[in-house]
Design a protein around this nucleic acid. Structure first.
Length: 721
RNA sequence: GGGCGAGUAGCUCAAUCGGAUAGAGCACCGGCCUUCUAAGCCGGGGGUUGUGGGUUCGAUUCCCGCCUCGCCCA
């Protein structure tokens, strides 16, 4: 709603500027701000400052002239235009009209702009988001949580769309590198440290299952052990490195005992990762695997295409002689003086046979994979069901085609128009290489629609690391943070953190609601823990390194998810109580709402909730609420409405900038406004019916918007807290 | 050596396209539970926005130099 009024104001001022005496039509983006204080109004125009230069006139004088013209226009919903400071035009809304608009949820939606982001198209594109992508060789840790929560929140926001209503088609992928060196390491650990063969691994996994031990946790330690094993004995270092490489090659080759072990273990760990993420409400549609990228020869097709389009050339001289390389963006490239030493190697040289090609690099495989995403490769994965979520949603996994198996069919994912890859900022360089390669192959549109959704890592504070029992050097102790390392087994496992948070929340719930049964309390505690964790990972802007700290993460007070959940629960309590006491105002509201919202509609769309009833009634009511909106008291009520009207522009901003932290901040601010209001005004004991209606509608609008906004963040509102 | 990011209150972080008195939370101090839930509310102290220049009506924001830290590439 805030957006709608802003647009109306903007077009009004543009119209005035186009007329004499100004005749200005080259101000593309008109700045509209919010004044620092509510009593100054809802919008501020600093336009006079800009015009002062052109017109060589005092800004205040210009502002006065413009304000007079704005007043003459009688813009719907606006009441006054005043001059403040050196030349701001402060615009005030008519609070009665505006609040009824906000209550109705009626958006007089402006025509959507052609979006550069590719998200707002009238014909919605197929958007493919890829996130999580954990190596399937160990348990998920806090760094992976940030990735998955950011990715999932982006998906939730985009599925609904910037205007809060449009449904976009967004697919969610979780890429599984099941033939990489990290999986090879875990296989080495099992075969060489534990001395198991394929049958032994099968037995071992069966015994883990019986004991209820989590394989990803066991592998966490195993992975740390094998990483150490490679290094610990200088005499054995070369031999062990060879074991590692041989294992990796066998794994890439497939169809042998080593790859069989890898398949078993990595698949079980992928299952664990899905379960972990599901605890936070995160689900996937498709799991493309590296093994199929290899078996289906994606790279060969991409290699041919890259040669054909001249993106790759074989370097004859210098240190990269014998390699297929690609020029990096922003570098000079090869000159007469010599080879391009800065070029990115895509295919390594072959040490045994200089005329043949060596192994392809990771970026090379990634280029092939991204050609598939944009349907430019001419090859496709097959897929089969991998996991069915409790809500019935199915997650598929890549596989080889098999005509005899009717459950296997071609993947329908490799036809994205817009992609988002949620990958931490350390991968910026390789991501840019992929984009550059696409552009070089002539896929300019695809390169433009390729978004590296980058974010900084989650690290541990030195205090937290010591708390976890890691010995730190003096150098490390002096650092602001310490990087999480899977190879060192150094980090906080996702499941452990979630368990701790649920436990902490359960303690609070039990203290407050001893009358509830165990299952109910656990259910509520889980929602609170998820709210706290998701909010914690979203409250920081993307390029802020999170120095993880248990104290902050386990906090349920202040700027946290539970703070916002609590505000919503308190609002909901008002309506529960009102309903229980058969509040006469509710009866009145019901009648009014029924007039607005025919029985037939109710039949189709379901019963209105009590707060929706209030809002429906309020939006068309005869109650004279104008007196209650004035003065300082009125300001405190109006602030809730104003905050609640901003959901749509905030969502728009969060999608446009791919910055979920904006939405998180907004949720907190709205909750703060509501808590403030809640404390100041006692609603159910209000004697004046009109004022009571306004107060109820205020609580209702806060509840509605809090619930919506929390929903985008993947945070549910518990029944009680 | 090159590229990218960061430096804001004791701590952790915000700050829209360059706007009004740089905001929150935590921690600390002092108040508020007989009311719709105190996971809350109110009040208080706490700032040369790393540093030196520049651009202008106005700079945390843009430009240049320097310092410190992190990441990536070679």
């Amino acid at each position: 709603m805030y957006l709608t009024y802003g647009k109306a104001l903007e077009s009004a001022i543009q119209e005035i500027l186009k007329q004499p005496p100004y005749q200005i039509d080259d101000i593309a983006a008109l700045a509209i701000e919010q004044p620092p204080k509510i009593e100054y109004g809802e919008f501020a125009l600093p336009i006079a400052f800009e015009l002062a230069k052109r017109l060589k006139k005092a800004p205040r004088k210009i502002a006065e002239e413009l304000a007079a013209q704005l007043r003459a226009k009688n813009i719907e919903g606006f009441s006054t235009f005043e001059i403040a400071g050196a030349g701001y035009i402060n615009c005030k809304l008519d609070r009665c009209t505006a609040s009824r608009d906000i209550a109705s949820g009626r958006a007089k939606r402006p025509v959507p702009k052609a979006a550069s982001s590719g998200v707002n198209h009238i014909f919605n594109p197929f958007i493919l988001v890829e996130h999580t992508s954990i190596n399937p060789n160990k348990a998920a840790h806090i760094g992976h949580l940030r990735n998955a929560i950011l990715g999932d929140t982006l998906v939730r926001m985009m599925r609904v769309g910037a205007d809060g209503k449009t449904k976009n088609i967004v697919g969610v992928q979780n890429y599984i590198d099941n033939t990489g060196v990290q999986v090879a390491d875990i296989v080495v650990a099992l075969t060489h440290l534990e001395g198991m063969n394929l049958a032994g691994v099968q037995q071992w996994m069966e015994s883990l299952r019986k004991r209820g031990e989590r394989i990803d946790f066991v592998c966490w330690d195993l992975y740390a052990r094998v990483s150490q094993w490679y290094e610990e004995d200088p005499a054995q270092k070369e031999a062990r490195k060879k074991i590692r490489m041989d294992t990796l090659h066998a794994l890439e080759q497939g169809g042998n005992e080593i790859s069989g072990i890898a398949e078993l273990v990595s698949t079980a760990i992928v299952h664990r990762h899905l379960e972990t993420m599901e605890r936070l409400g995160i689900q996937y549609d498709f799991l493309p695997r590296e093994s199929e990228v290899l078996r289906l020869h994606f790279w060969d097709a991409a290699f041919a295409l890259m040669k054909k389009t001249g993106v790759l050339y074989r370097e004859e001289k210098g240190k990269n002689a014998g390699c297929w390389v690609m020029r990096r963006a922003g570098t000079a490239g090869a000159t007469d003086d010599g080879p391009d030493e800065e070029a990115k190697i895509i295919v390594r040289s072959n040490k045994e046979n200089p005329d043949a090609d060596g192994p392809v690099t990771y970026v090379g495989k990634d280029i092939a994979y991204h050609l598939w995403k944009f349907n430019k490769l001419g090859l496709n994965f097959s897929q089969k069901n991998f996991y069915t979520y409790p809500n019935g949603h199915e997650c598929d996994i890549s596989c080889l085609p098999d005509e005899k198996d009717p459950s296997i069919g071609p993947s329908h994912f490799g036809k994205a128009e817009v992609i988002y890859n949620v990958i931490d900022s350390r991968q910026t360089d390789p991501q840019n290489n992929v984009i550059e390669a696409l552009r070089g192959m002539g896929f300019a549109e695809e390169a433009k629609n390729y978004h590296h959704f980058s974010y900084e890592m989650v690290a541990l504070t030195p205090r937290c690391a010591e708390e976890l029992g890691y010995a730190l050097s003096d150098e490390d102790k002096a650092r602001p943070f310490i990087e999480v390392s899977g190879r060192k087994g150094f980090g906080v496992k996702a499941d452990d953190l979630i368990d701790r948070m649920i436990e902490a929340a359960l303690g609070e719930v039990t203290a407050r609601h001893p009358e509830l049964d165990d299952a109910t309390r656990t259910n509520i505690a889980t929602k609170i823990a998820v709210g706290a964790l998701r909010y914690y990972m979203l409250r920081f802007t993307r390029n802020t390194i999170i120095a993880f700290d248990f104290k902050d993460a386990l906090s349920f007070e202040g700027e946290t998810g539970p703070y916002a959940q609590y505000a919503a629960v308190r609002a909901a309590n008002i309506f529960r109580k009102a309903e229980q006491s058969n509040d006469p105002l509710l009866q009145n509201a019901q009648t009014l709402a029924d007039e607005q919202y025919s029985k037939a509609m109710q039949h189709i769309l379901g019963e209105l909730s009590i707060e929706e009833t209030i809002l429906k009634a309020y939006s068309s009511s005869h109650w004279n609420v104008a007196p209650f909106f004035s003065g300082e008291e009125g300001d405190s009520i109006w602030e809730v409405w104003l905050a609640a009207s901003k959901t749509a522009p905030i969502i728009d901003q969060a999608i446009r900038t791919t910055e979920p932290a904006f939405l998180a901040k907004y949720v907190f601010q709205l909750a703060q406004q509501f808590n403030n209001f809640y404390h100041r005004h006692h609603i159910l004991t209000e004697a004046d019916p009109a004022r009571k209606a306004l107060l109820l509608a205020t609580a209702a609008v806060a509840l509605r918007e809090l619930t919506r906004a929390l929903g985008w963040l993947g945070i549910e509102v518990p029944e009680v807290m």
